[in-house]
Design a protein around this nucleic acid. Sequence first.
DNA 1: CAAGAAGGTCACCAAAAGGTAACCCGGTTA
DNA 2: TAACCGGGTTACCTTTTGGTGACCTTCTTG
Lengths: 122, 122
Amino acid sequence: MTQTQFRYCGLNVALKTLTGKWKPMILFHLFRTEEIRFNELWRIIPKVSKKVLLQQLGQMEEDGLLTREERKGFPPEVYYRISEKGRALGSVLAQLEAWANTYAPQQVQQVFDSEKHVQPFD
Amino acid sequence: MTQTQFRYCGLNVALKTLTGKWKPMILFHLFRTEEIRFNELWRIIPKVSKKVLLQQLGQMEEDGLLTREERKGFPPEVYYRISEKGRALGSVLAQLEAWANTYAPQQVQQVFDSEKHVQPFD
DNA sequence: CAAGAAGGTCACCAAAAGGTAACCCGGTTA
DNA sequence: TAACCGGGTTACCTTTTGGTGACCTTCTTG
């Protein structure tokens, strides 16, 4: 028997930092690319508006999940990358992913299908 | 080096089932009591409105995180308990809790403080 | 000089989430 | 009969979240 112990306060905090329509996808890309420019991300993520993407990134920076670096110059570029704190979530996110694939495969498939016609990435 | 692999589809699904103002607290109670009546839960959870509690429980039932059993009789009582699928999340939730306690202890403390004057439970 | 690229802001709107209070129903008890 | 209990719904409102399009700024290039 798995005697799992948790309180809800930390859980609340953790879920609040993860909640946002585009955050799972942003995290996904941050985990796979090591560093990514704003416009790259914007082009990769299907249908998100510039404002909202910006604001989700802003929240994630506030929450310390990622770092934002302005490299000034020509066209001034901004690089986002996963932080220590964000990276520490990796295994948990993978487990959430696994849980959904095990216990709700049809819904996962639906999400997948609803996006594949929009974005053929990989 | 932790080579964490996840896609965002399952993550999206998992987070969607966990998102809701009172769900962390509901889960917390379901994990510790094995079975609980609606009004018990309502009295234990500080300030939630009946409607919203009901609707969060409804979503969680739809999502299969918990089971709802009407025991008809006297005043007809309704018992909620964690499901298989829900219980499978236990260790992940504990890890999210641990992550928040490690990386955002001050925010966790804030949530704790903001609720302790309302509810002295345990 | 005109146009474009990168990153960002602003005003405004639409949808979703949450909250409040009143009410319903069936059965019990004062 | 009146009031109460457990569980639940409804109408209505407020707050939060996400979305659209125009605009700005600095620098570069045609």
